[in-house]
Structures are given as structure tokens and as C-alpha cells.
Write a protein that binds this DNA or RNA. Structure first.
Lengths: 250, 250
DNA sequence: TGTATGCGTTATGTATACAATAGCGGGGAG
DNA sequence: CTCCCCGCTATTGTATACATAACGCATACA
């Protein structure tokens, strides 16, 4: 195999894992489809050992499912699986927010969150919001949630939230926001931003219960949003994870 | 390698994973200790490939930590990590209980749980409880919690709870209950049993909020129990996960 | 005597060869 | 014509060989 170009800067396992996850979330690999190791070796450029390690990681991550007779298939999710995952994440984030509030955080630790908040405010001020701004929002929002999670200072909770985020926050590289969905999405984003503000305030004032409650409400908003999107077939691009929902034909 | 005895009834990877997890939870491998693949190959009887797969799975499971320079070490947990894990699990079980209550369950589905409940009642009736009965309790309690989790009918939640259970429910093969700790443990078990009864009742009557609340209370009881056990240095054997707590000397 | 550098050993990351099994297709018999 | 059985092929599970990087020790120089 002299023709293989090996990139030594990052481990083959990680490279394969990223490539495969991208293929799954972008829909190149359809739900229920069996993953061929050989094919994965070709598309990722790594050899079978790292590919298998990546497959094991993705299975543990919940994106793949082991086939009893051997090998892995892309896991198929129902609409309720996705909505449950969102609520699950909200519940865990609620716990994280409560921990942060109860344990107390310094002004210094809250600073990056407030900056994030300000940056999002800036973006949402545009009416209607542009596609570029929306993309920035997606990144900023993810950052906000990650920072909030960290604020709990609880490694087990942080870890668990990371694992619960695969579905609700799936963001493959091919992510594009549909133009027509922007105004409706912006409305939702504005409400969500209000939640963000409340949780920060609650944490600052060490109101654990309030911090927890608002994150749960935040998740419920996301669930309602998901339902609406599916029913109206609008702004589906908002949630890349929808690619993983098993269709009626399957 | 003619001398190697291969057991074909179960995959080498699974065998290695079970063996290694047991070594970790039983304390054969100390927290912070680097795991030698070579040594693992010898103790598990599998070859390096399945051993590595098992190591990856255990890392994803949270019992191992990747070392930047390569390889894995046994993860060390603080007392708060354990208590957070317990609260985490309680929060997730609360969500599961709420889902079960909101979505409704048939009498048929509740039956095994009630049987479990009855069997535990039977055990707790002895005063003081015997060591054998206590061991049975550990199994029955785990079964009750697993059944309750399943009742949510939410694969993502069930999955997440399974992953969150490693620490709170760690039950290595060498598990033994200290005689002197029995009376105190029995008191705690009786209170816990009351929680079990309430959650069943709440689910039956479709009271989601109450079902969720009692599971959270259940977790808080376990946390208080943990604190007490650590402070008084009593019934430490109750929680095998304590073997993973990093000592001050580390 | 202490520190730095270089070499050797060892362990991990990767690749590939081998083995076993499951699925599929063809052929034969009823 | 259909159904069952046998064999083949393709793919996974396992083992091992090879390469590379890190750690430690020893030696030499400051």
C-alpha cells in the first residue's frame, strides 16, 4: 500500500472516527444501513484496526448499533427518540445549572458566558437574521451550552451531557440553514436567548431551583420546535439529527 | 501460541472487557495506574486487538482515561464525583419515572416491579437482616431500578441511565457486606423501599411530577448515605465504587 | 556533583495476514 | 416448478508483525 497518504498530525483512529461520524450525520450512510469495514477503510484512508476502534467508539456514542451476527449498522431513531434526547439533555443541563448555582461561581467564570450572550444578542438584533449570522449563532449557542455545562464543575455530569448531545446538537459539516426558515427560527432563538439570560441571572444569585427550571423549560421549547418543524415540514435543516429519523418506508 | 486456550462461546473482546472491568472495580488495578496492554493480554487471555477494543469501550464507559502520550490509566474519582454520579443517576431515573407516568403503563408491565417490591419486603422483614439476604437485596434492587428504567420506554433515556450507573451501582465479583454495617444499612434500605413503593404508586396514578420527585429524593438519600459512610468509616463495603476514590497520598 | 544528551529498551499505534462464520446462490431432487 | 441442501464467497473477529515514539538510564561534560 504505497499509494496511501498517511497524515501523521492526527491519529488514524480519530481521523476515521470524525470521518465516519460526518458520513453518518450528513446522511451518506443511511439509518439501518450496515457499515462495511472495507468500504470505511477506503473512504477514511485508515486501515482496518483504527477503523474498527472508531466503530466501537461510535457504537458507544450511540450512533451505531452492533449487529448480532457481526459488524455495525447506523442506528435509526424515531421522532420521539430525538425529542427524548432533547429533553434528556435539558434535564442534565438543568442539573449542571443547579450545581453551578449551589456551588457558586466567580464573576471571572461567568465572564465568557456573558460575552457569549452579548455576541448572540448582537446577531439577533438583525431583522431578518442572515444565513451567515445564523451559522455564527449555531456555534455561539453550542459554546454557551458547553460553558454552562463546565460551570457545574462536575466531571461526571459534564461527561454525561457530552454524551447526551450527539442527537440534539448534531452538526455535520454539510449543515445549511434554509432561507425560508429564518424568520421563524429567529423568533425561537429570541425566546431561547431569554432563557440563557435567566439561567445566568439565577446562577449569579445562587438560585439553584430557578436555574434548573429554566434549562428544563429551554429543552421543552426545543421539543416544541422539533414537533412544529416536523409537522409543517419547515426549517428541517435546523436539526441535522433529523437525517437519522427512520422513514416510514424502512 | 499453541498453549492459549480459546473459549469460543463468547467473543474475546467481551471476555476481555468483563475481566478488565472486574479488575478495575475490585481494585486489582489501582486508580491512576497505567494499564499495560501486554499485562492485560496475559491476565485476560485475549490477544492485543480484542484487549484494545475492550480498553476503548472501558474508556467510553468512563472507567479508564486516555493518557495523552498513549495508553490508558484507571480513572480516579473524588468523593464528590461519586456523589454527583449518584445524583445524576437519580435525576435520570426521575426523568424515566416521569416518562413512564406520563405515557402510562399497563398493569401487566407493573407486575414484575411489584413482585420485586414484594421480594424485597420479604427480605427486609428479618431483623437483623442476614448477609445472604443483603446480597439478594443488592440483586433485587438493581433489578427494580433496571425495570423502572425500562418502563420509560425511551431508548435514549434507558441507554443514558445504563451509562450513568457504572459508579453508583458498581458491583464487582468480590463484593462482600461487612457484618457490623448491617443494622444501619437495613434502616436505609427500609426508607429506600418506601421510595420504591411511592414511585410505583405515582406511575400507576399517572402523577409524573410525584414520580420524578421521589426518585430524586431517593438519590439524595443515597448521597447522604455515602457521606455518612465516608465520615464514620462504616459500611464502606456498601459501595464498591469507593475503591475508585483517589486517596490523599496519590 | 549536577545536568544534559544520546542511546537502548519497551510499549503503543498501525497494518496486514489468517481464521471462522454467516449469507447467498446454484444445483439437484422430489 | 419448488424447496432444500451444499458449497462458495465475502466480511467480520482475531492474531501477530512492524514502525514509531516515549521513557529511562547511563555517561560525559560543565
Amino acid at each position: 500500500m504505497a499509494e496511501r497518504e498517511v497524515d501523521r498530525s492526527v491519529s488514524q483512529t480519530v481521523k476515521a472516527q470524525l470521518a465516519l461520524r460526518d458520513q453518518i450525520l450528513s446522511g451518506s450512510l443511511r439509518p439501518g444501513e450496515r457499515i462495511s469495514e472495507l468500504q470505511a477503510v477506503e473512504t477514511t484512508g485508515a486501515s482496518r484496526t483504527p477503523v474498527r476502534m472508531a466503530l466501537v467508539r461510535l457504537e458507544e456514542e450511540g450512533l451505531l448499533e452492533a449487529i448480532p451476527s457481526g459488524g455495525f449498522m447506523v442506528k435509526a431513531f424515531s421522532e420521539r427518540d430525538i425529542s427524548d434526547s432533547i429533553e434528556l439533555r435539558g434535564t442534565l443541563e438543568g442539573l449542571a445549572a443547579r450545581f453551578a448555582a449551589e456551588r457558586g461561581v466567580s464573576a471571572r467564570e461567568l465572564e465568557p458566558l456573558k460575552e457569549c450572550l452579548g455576541a448572540i444578542d448582537e446577531l439577533l438584533r438583525q431583522v431578518p437574521i442572515s444565513i451567515e449570522a445564523f451559522s455564527s449563532y449555531v456555534a455561539l449557542n453550542a459554546r454557551f451550552h458547553a460553558l454552562l455545562t463546565e460551570l457545574s464543575r462536575s466531571p461526571p455530569v459534564i461527561r454525561q451531557i457530552d454524551r447526551a448531545s450527539a442527537l440534539p446538537f448534531a452538526s455535520p459539516s454539510g449543515f445549511v440553514m434554509a432561507q425560508s426558515a429564518l424568520p421563524e427560527a429567529q423568533q425561537i432563538l429570541i425566546i431561547g436567548q431569554e432563557h440563557h439570560r435567566v439561567v445566568i441571572d439565577a446562577i449569579e444569585n445562587r438560585e439553584g431551583a430557578r436555574a434548573e427550571a429554566v434549562m428544563r423549560e429551554h429543552a421543552r421549547l426545543a421539543v416544541r420546535n422539533l414537533r412544529l418543524a416536523l409537522r409543517n415540514r419547515t426549517h428541517l435543516d435546523l436539526l441535522p439529527a433529523l437525517a437519522l429519523i427512520k422513514t416510514a418506508t424502512d
